[in-house]
Design a protein around this nucleic acid. Sequence first.
DNA 1: CTGCACTATGAATCGCTAA
DNA 2: GTTAGCGATTCATAGTGCA
Lengths: 261, 261
Amino acid sequence: MIFTSPPYADSRKDTYGGIHPDEYVNWFLPITKELFRVLKPTGTFVLNIKERVVESERHTYVIELILNMREQGWLWTEELIWHKKNSHPGKWPNRFRDAWERLLQFNKAKQFNMYQEEVMVPVGKWATTRLKNLSKTDKVRDPSRVGSGFGKNVSNWVGREMVYPTNVLHMATETGNKNHSAVFPEALPEWFIKLFTREGDWVLDPFMGSGTTNKVAQRIGRNSIGIEILSEYFDVAKNRIDKKQLMLFEKKGKYETNQTK
Amino acid sequence: MIFTSPPYADSRKDTYGGIHPDEYVNWFLPITKELFRVLKPTGTFVLNIKERVVESERHTYVIELILNMREQGWLWTEELIWHKKNSHPGKWPNRFRDAWERLLQFNKAKQFNMYQEEVMVPVGKWATTRLKNLSKTDKVRDPSRVGSGFGKNVSNWVGREMVYPTNVLHMATETGNKNHSAVFPEALPEWFIKLFTREGDWVLDPFMGSGTTNKVAQRIGRNSIGIEILSEYFDVAKNRIDKKQLMLFEKKGKYETNQTK
DNA sequence: CTGCACTATGAATCGCTAA
DNA sequence: GTTAGCGATTCATAGTGCA
C-alpha cells in the first residue's frame, strides 16, 4: 500500500518550497502516475489531503486532482474523513475551525486486499441494555417496514463485543514534538496499514517527512520505503527508525537530479 | 438563505423518479442557476449531498457539480461535514459504513451574513481541569512552535462557557416516523438557519420534501418558501406546518408544466 | 415524574441468479 | 453478453409504553 500526506499547497512555504495552489495538480500528477506504476494490482493508495482557503474560497485543486487521477486509471474507491478532535482553535469572520481532512482511497482494481477484522472497534454501550432481554421478534429475521429489503436478527449480536468501524475516523492530532511541521498521529497510518496490508507486506510513503508512516510500519511488522527530498527531514526520520533497517536509505552513489527549488 | 437536500442520484427511484448519476450535473445546473438569481448578495446556499457508489467507485457528480457551479458564479466558500452518528449498519467486502455527508456552502460574494454567536456550543470538559492552575506561559500570548504565526493566550479562556463550533457537525439521523424516505434531523437546517439568518429573514428549500426546513424556519421565526413537485410530500408538509402560514402554497390557478417522469 | 425495557428504522451496497 | 431483481449483511438512536 501507499500512504502519504503530501505537502499541502503553499501551506508549508518555509519548509517545503510551497507549491502554488493553481499549479498543484500539474505538480502532483506525474507523481501519482509513478505510484500507479509501482503499486500492486491488489494494493491501495491512501492520500491524506485538504484544500486550502484561497481568496475566501476552498480551492478546487483536490477535486480536480481526483478527476485527473481517474484519467490515469485510478479508481476513486472511497473518501474517508479524518475528524481532528483537537483542531486548532481560532476565529474567523466567515468560517469555523477546520476540524477534518480528506483521506482519499484509490485503487487499481475493484478487487483489492482489505482485512476489515484488523480495525474493529468496541460495540457501543447501547448493546448492554439492548441485548439484555430479547423479544420474540429479536430472535428471527425481522424485515424492514419500508420494504427496503433491510432486515435484522437481533439475536445474532448477542455476545458480540467488536463491530466494524465507519468511514469517519476520530483521532486527535499529535502535539508538541518533532521538528516537522505537518504531524499526523501514528494512529492514522496504523489504521490504514492494518486494514490494507499483512505482516511482511510493503508500505510506501513518497513524502516521508519525519518518517511517521515508516516508523509505524516497522513497529507492526511491515516492510516500508520512504522518500524524502529534504535532508533535515531525512535526518529526523533516521533517528526515529531502527538503524538496522536503513540499508536502502544509506545507499552510496551519485544520482542525476532535476533542478528543484 | 437556501438550504436543501436534493434527491440523490438514482437513490430514490421509487419516490422521485431517480436521476441517473451520469445525468445528475446537467439536471441540477439549471436549478442552481435560478437559485443564484434569487439569492440575495449577502445570502448563503447550503447544499446537503453525498455521492453514490457506482461500480465500486464513488461517483464524481458532486465534485463536477462544484466545478460547474463555480462557472455559474457561485463561490465555494466551505465544505462542512455532517457526521451521522447512527448511520446504516451493513457489511461490504470493500468498504465500511458510510457515516458522513457533505454540506457544501456556496455564496455570491466574499462578504455574507453570518451570526456565529447563534451556534456556540458548551466548552469541553477539558476547560475545568486545564484552567484550574495556569502556568506563566498560559498568561501571555504563546506563539506556535512551528512558526505558523498561530499563538494562544490560555488565560483568555478562563470563565468562558461557550465556544465556537468546528466545521464537523455530529447529529443522528431521525428514525421512526414520517412518510418521507429522506429524513434529516431538524437540528441540521436549524443550525444553518440560525447561523446565516436572523428573525424575519427568508429561507428557501427548493426540494421541500416533507417540509423539515420550513417547519424549523417557522418555529424559530423565519419566513420560508418550499417547493415540491410531488403532491404526496406536499400533503405531508402541509400537516407539519402551521396552517395559517400556507397562503402561498394554496394559490389557485393552472400552471404550465414540463412533462416529467 | 423518572427510569427502564423494548421497538422501529434509517439517502446502503455487493454478488448471485434469473431474465 | 448485459441488466434487473433479490437476498444477505449489521449499529446506534429516538420514541413509546409501562412500572
